[in-house]
Amino acid sequence: MNHQFYRLDVLAKQVQAKFFGQADLELLGLASLEKANEKQLAFVNGEKYINQAKGSKAGALIVTQEYKDLLEGHHSNFLVVDSPYLAFAILTHVFERKQIERGIENTAQIHPSAIVSETAYIGHYVVIGENCVVGDDSIINSHVKIDDFVEVGKNCFIDSHVTLTGACKIGHRVRIHANTVVGGEGFGFAPYQGKWHRIVQLGSVIVGDDVRIGSNCSIDRGALDDTILENGVIIDNLVQVAHNVKIGANTAIAAKCGIAGSTTIGKNCVLAGAVGIVGHINITDNVTITGMSMVTNNISKAGTYSSGTALMETNAWKKAAVRFKQLADVPLTQLVKRLDHMQSQIESLESTFKLRK
């Protein structure tokens, strides 16, 4: 925790808010409406939370003008903004505990040809190879391995036990969390005469600016062309991105997703948890894929897509599974013929009723 106090009027400037109440009120941090105390801020992110906000003990509330009007008489200190959730996100950076260490720990091993900024931090047992670059104010935590010819930009955060290899290039303000591998060997093999023959992966990984990669992820280098993560991509934990994949700017990928090789995903897409995407397909911009879906074909139109079946009670699921199998066993042409026959019968009955009238 950051134990520094901030005045209400100072916090207002951080989020371009109008403040109401005690300007010199000192606040220590952020908390939920339920657990906040008089030294903490809480935010109200919807009308359904108004009653909870009325009973909150928070020292000040982040609200819209509409919510302020509803809460006056219950609270007296407010930061009024257009988006309370965005203001909350910005203020988390204010109250975040900052890693202020700079310099190189004595257990780090750095090749003489590497260029490491004087304002960077290199933690214990870090290994940095030949011709590497680490930019200004970047933090490389303990036990990180940075292989030959890797470049890390400015203001990056590389957490413990990360491996950067395959001559990958990391942009500015990138965060990579513990145990992730960027630039590892892609899964490329040529089958011949009953054996798998390894294909050397000659490409790299290019990571843009403001990218976030969670822990225990694998971002494989390309076989020939590079794997590319464009600016603003955010990736949760436990995600696999295979060789030669390209992910467009500001796309968000939740945990346990797997993206097979040579797939292109557009800008501003959302992949919910455990989505699987086959290789060599293209997904256009502004596509949302719901959780546990399997994408097997190109998506050329923006929108929301789903696959799989929803949760149901076990006995109902077993009956449905039998029906699924029965449908699969019936040729599609036979189903179409049955539907056409039913349509003809309905039209015949309608004609009969009209004649009788």
Results as ranks from 00 to 15, higher is better:
69 D>A: 15
70 L>C: 03
71 L>V: 11
71 L>E: 04
73 G>T: 07
74 H>K: 14
75 H>F: 10
77 N>A: 05
77 N>Y: 06
78 F>M: 09
79 L>T: 03
79 L>N: 03
79 L>P: 00
79 L>I: 06
79 L>C: 05
80 V>Q: 03
80 V>C: 08
80 V>K: 04
81 V>F: 04
81 V>Q: 01
82 D>I: 03
82 D>F: 02
82 D>P: 00
82 D>V: 05
83 S>W: 03
84 P>W: 02
84 P>N: 04
85 Y>A: 12
89 A>V: 07
89 A>L: 10
91 L>N: 12
91 L>G: 12
93 H>S: 08
94 V>W: 09
96 E>F: 00
97 R>M: 06
97 R>V: 08
97 R>T: 10
98 K>N: 06
98 K>D: 04
98 K>F: 01
100 I>G: 11
101 E>N: 07
101 E>S: 09
101 E>W: 03
102 R>K: 14
103 G>T: 12
103 G>I: 12
104 I>E: 06
104 I>K: 12
105 E>K: 13
105 E>H: 13
106 N>K: 14
106 N>G: 04
106 N>L: 10
107 T>E: 06
107 T>Y: 06
108 A>C: 12
111 H>W: 06
111 H>F: 13
111 H>D: 15
112 P>Y: 05
113 S>P: 13
113 S>N: 02
114 A>T: 14
114 A>D: 05
114 A>Y: 12
115 I>A: 08
115 I>M: 07
115 I>D: 08
117 S>M: 00
117 S>R: 01
117 S>V: 00
118 E>C: 02
118 E>I: 03
118 E>N: 13
119 T>L: 05
120 A>I: 04
121 Y>L: 07
121 Y>E: 04
121 Y>N: 04
122 I>L: 06
124 H>W: 00
124 H>F: 01
124 H>N: 08
125 Y>V: 02
126 V>F: 13
127 V>S: 15
128 I>K: 03
128 I>P: 08
128 I>S: 03
130 E>M: 15
131 N>S: 09
131 N>G: 05
131 N>P: 07
133 V>K: 11
133 V>A: 01
134 V>G: 00
135 G>D: 07
136 D>N: 14
136 D>G: 02
137 D>M: 02
